[in-house]
Design a protein around this nucleic acid. Structure first.
Lengths: 141, 141
DNA sequence: AATACTTAGTTGTTTTATCACACTCAATCC
DNA sequence: GGATTGAGTGTGATAAAACAACTAAGTATT
């Protein structure tokens, strides 16, 4: 159920309450790149135990980030899929990849513009002004 | 020193090895919005213990995300500041704020274009083509 | 037909991480 | 001179995670 590890009035803290547990983001990431079954996920995340994966999948389904669909009755077998809000974590992954690319001693992945192959930067676009903004501000909602 | 909780060849996992511990991102965030001393940070993060803050600050300094500067000799008092790589986590915070804004039941912060006040979206800009890309790709580096 | 293997977990124990609380030490506030 | 503040350290308790073994149903192998 809900953990509320951080009891702070902040998007960041509240978001981390959902996805900030150990392994959680990596599990979601595996699903984002196409792994859908329990063992597919488990195999690609060496060090992750069955128990923790089982716990996390249950929690993520409660939190609405994933859905499980039965694809075999006997024995029961589930396929896990991201919901819209789970898919929306892509920007979080991209920001982590971007930071890693520029600040880790060793880098494994990078973000490129598919049609030209060059690396891209993260920017902020104002749909009202139809421009990229150089004066981003974070305000209380 | 290094923990290597996740032993996976992935930017995301390696980045989370540095900033994925409990409280770590929130501590960095407090520094980003201007809190610089031990007690300033501690006070604004209710629930965080002295010990953990002390541990995290030491670790983050080792990892090169922050630096501490003595501002009083007797007694020794330090002011903590983000380094360039610490500051670069801003995109990570923004992506978390953005996700929270759109997917949390309650939202506290949002990203706006300072000069017009409208909310912005996260996008990816290709400096080579000088356009925002709609065909982002993640590739092995 | 018996044995082994795979999937998708559950249960139980050990180890590690985190929390809560007390304490230090020097300086300053009342 | 006692209380409070700033910046921590130390210790024991508790929660979380890692590790290991086990289940149950079906599939493949010998």
């Amino acid at each position: 159920m809900s953990k509320d590890r951080y009891d702070l009035p902040c998007n960041i803290a509240q978001t981390l309450n959902i996805i900030g547990d150990r392994w959680t983001l990596l599990i979601i990431h595996e699903m984002m790149i196409g792994r859908t079954t329990f063992n597919e996920i488990k195999k690609s995340l060496t060090g992750l135990s069955s128990k923790l994966l089982s716990d996390r999948l249950k929690y993520l389904e409660e939190a609405g980030l994933i859905v499980s669909a039965l694809y075999s009755e006997h024995p029961p077998r589930y396929r896990y899929k991201l919901t819209e809000s789970g898919e929306a974590l892509e920007t979080v992954f991209n920001s982590l990849i971007y930071w890693g690319r520029h600040h880790l001693p060793k880098c494994y992945k990078k973000l490129i513009h598919a049609s030209c192959g060059h690396e891209v930067d993260i920017s902020y676009h104002c749909p009202h002004c139809q421009t990229n903004v150089d004066d981003l501000k974070v305000i209380e909602a």
